[in-house]
């Protein structure tokens, strides 16, 4: 621990402390990690089998070869791991804080409460999914002879996708100020996110519209995959970036709004 000279290094130092304590807390329960690795493998096998059912029959999603569709599965698995590692643990903690009233402690710290609540915890259980996801993307990428610049160009929309996912997740977490127990809502989000397992063209047009404009699942997996394959329409990537920034901003505003209700009904 060094004296933090500027806010950024203070925040980085805090993330390091948060995560090292979160990891030590989780290592108290070692078996969990093994089970989560097995669960990830099972989930991945499910995704691959689903995809295989289509392609084994000679059916192709319009414009997506087997390897190209694999990239979508890989990105999906990666994001699933990301949300388990960084989002789920923290979100459930917001709910607990509200339920037990310990949010008071967070609000009285001279630090952004959204930062504290978003980064305080991380779970190693997401790691297997992250690794398997990367592995699938890499495998498909090698088969498709992708260059390293392709991976790089995929990275940016994946970052946007992760930001969108985080913002949606945090907004849902903030609603616990009103509803207190909202574990169920996060299950709904998880369920909708599952739609990102396959390229958007796999779905009927009405679903595509829903998953693009209502629940932006398309931006989580399909758009990054297309960018990675070097065939994304730039406007989609720009749109993805705008959406990410807008949602991030909105999540912050929404949190401030929610806190007004946590603290007082009359102000």
């Amino acid at each position: 621990m060094k004296l933090a000279s500027n806010p950024f290094s203070k925040y980085f130092q805090l993330i390091r402390l948060f995560w090292s304590t979160a990891i030590s807390a989780e290592l108290e329960y070692r078996m969990n990690f093994i089970f989560s690795a097995l669960t990830s493998l099972g989930g991945l096998a499910g995704s691959l089998f689903g995809l295989f059912l289509f392609y084994g029959q000679g059916y192709h999603f319009q414009g997506w070869s087997w390897e190209e569709a694999l990239i979508v599965v890989g990105i999906f698995t990666f994001l699933k791991g990301f949300s388990t590692a960084f989002l789920a643990a923290n979100l459930n903690r917001i709910v607990k804080h509200v339920e037990r009233g310990t949010l008071d402690f967070v609000l009285l710290k001279p630090i952004s409460s959204q930062f504290w609540l978003s980064f305080h915890s991380m779970s190693l259980w997401g790691l297997p999914d992250i690794l398997f996801g990367l592995f699938i993307v890499l495998y498909a990428g090698i088969k498709l002879k992708l260059s390293w610049t392709s991976y790089l160009s995929g990275l940016i929309p994946i970052l946007f996708g992760a930001t969108i996912l985080y913002s949606l997740w945090f907004i849902l977490g903030a609603t616990s100020v009103w509803f207190t127990r909202i574990y169920n809502i996060t299950e709904v989000l998880k369920g909708l996110m599952d739609a990102g397992r396959f390229p958007m063209v796999a779905y009927p047009v009405s679903y595509q519209v829903f998953f693009t404009f209502i629940v932006p699942v398309a931006f989580l997996t399909t758009v990054p995959a297309e960018a990675l394959l070097g065939r994304a329409n730039p406007s989609w990537i720009i749109g993805s970036g705008c959406l990410a920034i807008a949602l991030l901003w909105f999540s912050n505003q929404f949190w401030r709004f929610a806190l007004r209700f946590y603290t007082s009904a009359s102000s």
Binding site: M1, K10, L14, L17, F18, T21, P110
Partner: peptide, 9 residues
């Protein structure tokens, strides 16, 4: 340690 970092000690 976390509290110390939050308060910049």
């Amino acid at each position: 340690q976390i509290n110390a970092a939050v308060y910049g000690l």
